[in-house]
Amino acid sequence: MLKHPTDSARRDKEDALRHLAIATGLLAATQAAADTPVLSVYTYDSFNTEWGPGPAVEQAFEETCGCDLQFVTAGDGASVLSRLRLEGARSEADVVLGLDTALIGAARESGLFAPVTVKADYALPIPWQDPEFVPFDWGYFAFVGLKDGPMPTSFVELAESDASVVIQDPRSSTPGLGLLMWVKQAYGDAAEDIWEELADNIVTVTPGWSEAYDLFLDGEADLVLSYTTSPAYHLIAEGDDSKIALPFEEGHYMQVEVAGMLKSSDQPELAQQFLQFMVTDAFQSVIPTTNWMYPAVEPDAGLPEGYMTLMEPAKPLLMSAEEAASVRDVALDEWRRALSQ
């Protein structure tokens, strides 16, 4: 989930158009719009930006569905889930896009999601079997820094160095939660000690990935928690090879991003249709160069060239959804205790 630091200029444009339509009283236009079924997709901020996958996905899906696909953003991935739980069965969302392996447990527990059947030939590093959630991309978490900046090779080395780092809040952000799981799986009972050691390296804890990455780009910190795929963005989109992802000895935690359909949806067929569309080439082929993650299904054209240069973790880490759900509260407690010192 990588995006450029520009917010939804597109939605702004839509806003402007909508206002214009209302102002000039184009009754016919609004009438026609009212007849088109609306599919409301809740997602994280960076997905639906001018630079993110949102616009391309919307256009491609609307060509086939005869519907109006509307993205609604609500912060980072974990905030999206909170928002849904807050709204409960009254939510207007039909589909939620942008939860991940560490959140699936909590999402399932909420009882808000409906079973789906989607068939695909996944290119995931793990076998995928889930009755409710459909994967759309994946990646490894990593600290991203500058080639001529500090380059610690493990959490211990990072904690001992004076490198500054921005991370995300695990309660609102999926990368933040991923980092929590990463440290927990690598260090188990010693995780809290690692966090205590890291506390003085952490400049600030942001609510979402976007804020953290932008702080890093602004030079507020040496390192930022992001993905091994983040340097591909700078390489391909900006021709800039100065950003690198640091390989860590402990291994790298994996994230599979998923979408699901809500029980309360008033467009269940359309929602199901969208989830199936999500694993087709029209969706998957834009992922590597807009969301800057590995696609869940190999695109027909393969991966873009810059992806060949990316760091490949020697030791992938991942907890099952059940495991992640069971350690989350303990790990979160440790994290909060260590960082509030």
């Binding site: 974990a78 905030s79 909170s82 928002r83 309660r171 609102s172 804890v205 994290w335 960082l339 509030s340």
Partner: peptide, 17 residues
């Protein structure tokens, strides 16, 4: 962050997080 949360902010976080 955990180091700089007031009670008012904690109320907000209990909602949104």
């Amino acid at each position: 962050g955990p180091r700089a949360t007031t009670v008012e902010l904690a109320i907000y976080q209990a909602f949104t997080y």
